[in-house]
């Protein structure tokens, strides 16, 4: 019973629908609200994105410890629940146009996959970190868009690729990293979950991983199509990233790619 409670608590932060509604509410807070004000700075939200999965992984480990490692049927139920949550949020992500909602839903879809691996005894810490860290570059760049244009939203200011080429290049890389394209920690996290889980149950592992991954790509392309590509508006003032900020972002992306390699070396 205690294991079930701990797993359900973990399901709040390694989100399982409908427990996921809470974490989505938190991550989507409007900066104008009281709680949102405290999370207005991107660093605070980045901290939250990294902290929440760690809490979830801790609760998961505690649940396993309490059960003495014997969580067979319960783990399978949670794995199916996690897989369904992941695909469900990946499907919902397709129609999201707001940056904050997009990140919150992708976080939900990605971190729910930890349950798929956990059921098959894949150590959850590194995949959880990999999936969460992959979202950070985009979080900061969404914040940059909100600062410049008032909100980070698809379709409001298309064609940034022509007006803000440096920002756009980094934005493209950040989106690719978020949707787990190779060299992102997210890709290696998915590989680790897949390689580990397939030894226990092929369908239960590969189906949610594959479907979510496919739908993330689709929604990532929607972001690029509405922000980077298209014809720029004439009535907006565009300010590209300065060299120093750009180098900082690029270095962060490179560091994350190296972390991805570290993950794969640990995995094989």
């Amino acid at each position: 019973m205690l294991t079930l409670i701990l797993f359900l608590l973990a399901g709040l932060v390694l989100p399982l629908f409908p427990l996921s509604l809470g974490v989505n509410l938190l991550l989507q807070q409007d900066p104008a609200s009281a709680l949102g004000g405290r999370l207005a700075h991107p660093a605070a939200r980045a901290g939250l994105l990294v902290l929440l999965p760690l809490v979830g992984v801790g609760l998961l480990a505690l649940g396993r410890l309490v059960a003495g490692g014997e969580v067979g049927a319960l783990a399978t139920v949670f794995a199916m629940w996690g897989g369904l949550t992941s695909v469900f949020y990946a499907f919902r992500l397709l129609s999201v146009r707001d940056g904050r909602i997009w990140l919150a839903q992708l976080y939900t879809s990605a971190l729910a996959l930890i349950w798929v691996g956990a059921a098959h005894e894949v150590p959850p810490l590194l995949p959880a970190l990999g999936l969460a860290l992959s979202l950070l570059p985009l979080l900061f760049l969404f914040d940059g868009l909100a600062v410049r244009f008032g909100s980070a939203r698809v379709g409001l200011y298309p064609g940034l690729g022509l007006c803000m080429p440096v920002f756009s290049t980094l934005f493209i890389l950040a989106v690719l990293m978020a949707v787990a394209v190779p060299f992102s920690p997210g890709f290696f996290a998915i590989s680790e979950l897949g390689f580990g889980g397939v030894g226990r149950n092929e369908l239960l592992t590969l189906l949610p991983l594959g479907l979510s991954w496919l739908l993330w790509t689709w929604s990532g392309i929607n972001l690029l199509a509405g922000i980077v590509f298209g014809t720029p508006r004439d009535d907006l003032a565009y300010a590209d990233l300065g060299a120093r900020v750009a180098v900082r972002h690029a270095a962060a992306l490179l560091a994350l790619a190296l972390f991805g390699l570290f993950l794969v070396e640990g995995m094989l």
């Binding site: 998915i190 590989s191 897949g194 390689f195 889980g197 397939v198 092929e202 991983l209």
Partner: peptide, 9 residues
């Protein structure tokens, strides 16, 4: 991806 996972397993 499935091929890689199955082969590795």
């Amino acid at each position: 991806l499935a091929v890689v996972a199955l082969v590795y397993h």
